[in-house]
Design a binder for these strands. Structure first.
Lengths: 339, 339
DNA sequence: CCGGCATGTGTGACCGTGAACATGCCCAAC
DNA sequence: GTTGGGCATGTTCACGGTCACACATGCCGG
């Protein structure tokens, strides 16, 4: 009887079984923490596993259980701080729960690109999906491809509590808006995110609601693309008229661009114009001037997101439902209204 | 003979075979573009596949071929623009080549955290590894875990051309340094990255070499952690002495923090102090003042990285070896030396 | 006219794991 | 003393692909 380790192949449970003098099924039971295994048998098996540096074969397991233990992330703008932080947190949380994460980034948000990304994820049999992207289009595409998988969105308007793990974006936006109103601002612009991002919409609604609650008249929000570049050009446009004293930007990058445009025009922040951002990226504290913004806990968001998803997958998993309350961080980019 | 689709399970090649009136092996041949299949047979199989929405089962394929077609990324600081951009590009390139990507982020760079991340990747049988992290420790850990997988590092000092896909970091650092020297600066500090990041070391060496080449005396670089926060505090420290007219920061975030500290001290950039960054993150153009920096093409880097890895994996893949030349972007944060 | 080879297709084994079912044993309850 | 049930373990099969090999057919050359 040969007890030699195989040549090329990694050791399998059968190799372990042979060396431990048990059946492969007993090894499998040890792996899966089956209750009725004699402690000494279990120990013997564990010893052999350690000796052989046995590692379970994920593909084999996935095949027989038809469970991939993989969560997919469909992400746009993954180079931005917010999405990137959430992705990192999702990955960490998933790993802690014994899941793997596979990411598909979409560069453009056209339907084809989304479909490609989703197909790529679907092809590996993801068990859950986190969407950090223009959500409306993603869900349309999901339906078209008849991919049926539990999903979670990172943000929400509160409409769809089963699928959304929300930092309360609306509350955050209201916080930011109220801050400006309380400083005496009455003509406030809102630089929003892309139209089909649900969080952009939520922030916009928070802005509009708060303005309405204080009977402050509003102008139509400007739809941006999250980039500093856009903020800069939007700022240049706005300054040709200059009928406002404050701008609430729906993220920090666009706020940075705005501030650049405002300084270029020879104006001072916050003396002439106040700016509020959203996200509190780590750099925001070092902008000039340091940016007043709304802090989101992206990491907590990512963690809860996974918990919510695993709640569908694994009824035993803890459920952290409930919104995360964002926090207004007042720095130097806001001040009393000039007129 | 039942030709009904199965209840719960997804269709398999055997289902396709039955409906197309061929053997499962023929279906497999169609999937793998085997040359000798009659066109009409092939078409019939393809039609049935489309009708059934057949999707190959990745786990089954991985099991039998013992190839996962998965590339692992071990990443630290994945929320920073540089790593995040490279990850996105790697993912795109891998996807285009029919590979999947799995990421493990490490929060702290201690050995335990690295080992966890690597074990997680190894457990899914990655075929290649991209390291965007403190590389020295990673390789030690790889060896300890006796994980044997082709790997690539994103950056390099040029020492290890087989495993490194390099933007020529040293050349970039020399570009930045030369720019300052040519502006007349003679006392220049370098704010470096963490010690065990190879790109940090490369940039540092580039700085030192260029200074040496011009016979400019140097002080010891300050070792930072890539964050704006660190840049800010390092700046405050440095300004207590103020024996310099320029600082070359090894990334843009730290440069941002430096500029904040300099303004806090009542000094002006670049009148009193010039600052050069590294990376050219999209926000750098909107810093105050807009930052002179070295542009790296992170996306190209990611793409080549995958190509290099696949070169080991798949001899047919194109090989883009050769360094990418970084580019100095002169903006408003640098000017002639004040004294 | 037959052997050899290319072409097109089918049969059966196998990859590593887990589930269902079977087995043998011990102990308690009737 | 038989029966029944839990425990610890083994046997067999299935998962959905690919691979090695077998086989039928047709064409070509000696």
């Amino acid at each position: 009887m040969s007890v030699e380790p195989q040549r090329g192949r990694a050791p399998s449970i059968r190799d372990v079984a042979r060396l431990a003098g048990v059946s492969h099924q007993t090894v499998s039971r040890v792996l899966n923490h089956h209750p009725s295994i004699r402690p000494e048998t279990k120990q013997r098996v564990l010893d052999v596993m350690a000796e052989l540096q046995y590692k379970p074969n994920r593909a084999a397991r996935a095949l027989v259980t038809s469970r991939s233990r993989t969560i997919g992330i469909l992400s746009a703008s993954s180079t931005q701080y917010g999405p990137a932080s959430s992705i990192a947190a999702i990955e960490a949380a998933a790993r802690a729960a014994g899941y793997w994460v596979s990411t598909a980034n979409i560069e453009s948000s056209d339907a084809g690109s989304i479909a490609d990304g989703l197909a790529h994820l679907a092809a590996q049999g993801i068990e859950g999906l986190v969407v950090i992207a223009p959500q409306v289009r993603v869900f349309d595409t999901l339906a078209q491809l008849s991919i049926d998988v539990p999903y979670v969105t990172l943000q929400s308007t509160g409409r769809d509590p089963d699928h959304a793990m929300s930092v309360d974006q609306m509350a955050g936006a209201r916080l930011a808006t109220r801050h400006l109103i309380q400083l005496g601002h009455r003509s406030i612009y809102h630089l929003a995110g892309p139209q089909d991002w649900i969080e952009a919409e939520a922030r916009m609604r928070g802005f509009l609601d708060e303005m309405g609650a204080h009977d402050v008249p509003t102008t139509a929000p400007i739809l941006g693309d999250w980039t500093a570049e856009f903020g800069y050009y939007a700022g240049r446009e706005l300054l040709t008229v200059r009928d406002f004293t404050a701008i609430f930007s729906s993220n920090d990058q666009m706020a940075l661009g705005l501030m650049h445009a405002i300084r270029d025009a020879g104006l001072e922040i916050p003396r002439d114009i106040s700016i509020v951002g959203f996200d509190d990226i780590p750099e925001a504290a070092h902008f000039w001037p340091p940016l007043t913004t709304v802090r989101q806990d992206f990491a907590e968001l990512g963690r809860r997101c996974v918990a919510l998803l695993l709640g569908d997958l694994d009824p035993a998993a803890p459920d952290y439902r409930g919104t995360i309350v964002p926090e207004l961080i007042v720095r130097a980019s806001t001040g009393p209204a000039a007129f």
